[in-house]
Amino acid sequence: MIEISNLTKTYGAKKALDSLSFTADKGEILGLLGPNGAGKSTTMNIITGYISCTSGIVKIDGYDVLEEPKEVKKRIGYLPEQPPLYTDMVVLDYLRFVYDLKKIKEADKKAHIIEIMKLVGINTVSGRKIANLSKGYKQRVGLAAALLGNPPVLILDEPTVGLDPKQIIEIRSVIKRLGEDRTIILSSHILSEISAVCDRVVIINEGKIVVEDTTDNLMQKYSSGRRLMLRVAGEKERVEEILLNIVGIKSVTYIGSQQEGVDFEVETDIKIEPDFNKQLFFIFAENGMPILMQKEEESSLEDIFIELTNKSDRKNETEEMGGE
C-alpha cells in the first residue's frame, strides 16, 4: 500500500532524510519512532505531498506522489502535528468544508459526517466554535477531518500529544480499530504508545533508518540481557560475591540496604527461566541467606530505542571524524 524507497530530503547542506526506504501493507499500523528532529514529520509531509523530496520514490497504492499527486492525496487522511484547524469555524462547518475540499462522494454527506464525529467522540461539540474547544477536542476534530471520506491510508503525526490519559486510551483504541482495514503510519516519541498500537516499528535517527522490525522481534533481538531486582537477607559484600560467581550473571549493581536485607540489580546474559531461578534460590539457601524479594525486569522498547539511537549517533560521529 505504501512504498517508500531511497527517500532523501536536503535543506541546504543539511540532510533531513537520507535514503529512507520502508513499506507498509494494508491492515498494518506502522510506528515511526525517533527523537525530536529525526525526520518523522518530514517523512510524513513528503508522503502526503505537502513538501517534495530531493530524491527517491513514494508510492501509495501504486501511484507516485510526484507524478499523480491528486490520486495519492485522495487516498490519504493526514493529521499533522498541529491539526490544521480554522479556529473561527464551528466544528460541523469545518468538517463540511473539509468534505467539500476533499471532493468526497459519499451517498449521504450529513450521515457520513455524523458517523465520523461519533467515531472520534465529538458529536457533542459539533455546534461549538473550534477556538473554544480544549486541546483534546481540537485534536479529535483534526482526526475527524483526516478520517472524512474513509481514506485507505492514514498518516497521523503524534496523534495523542496534549491529550489526557483517558483521551489517550480512547484515541489509541480508535486507531487500533481503524487499523483493521486501513494502512496507518503513526509517528510518536512516546514508546509505550508505539508498543501499544503498532504492529511494526521503524526507528529513525538523523534522517536514517536505525532499525525496522515488529515490536515483538525488537524486544527479543535487542533486549541486551535480562534484569532482575533482588533483595537478600545478608551482608552486602557476601551477597555480591555469591552473585558474581553465578554463571550467566553479567553485572551486579548495589542499590541500597533495607532493614531486612540488601537490594541488588542483576543483569544476566541468559534468559531468566525457572532453572536459573531455582539455582539462585538454592545457592542463597545453602549460604543461609534467604531471598526476600525477586522481580524480573525486561528491557522496554524505551531501552532499545535509547540504545539504538545512541549507537547510531556514535556511528555518525565516527564517520564524521573519519571523514575529517
Binding site: 505531498g49 505537502y50 492525496k73 485522495k74 479556529t87 475540499l101 476533499k102 471532493k103
Partner: peptide
Amino acid sequence: RQKTEQLLLTAPVD
C-alpha cells in the same frame, strides 16, 4: 501562520 495551509495543500485539489 496557523499552519492550515497544510490542509489545503494535502487535499486532492490543484
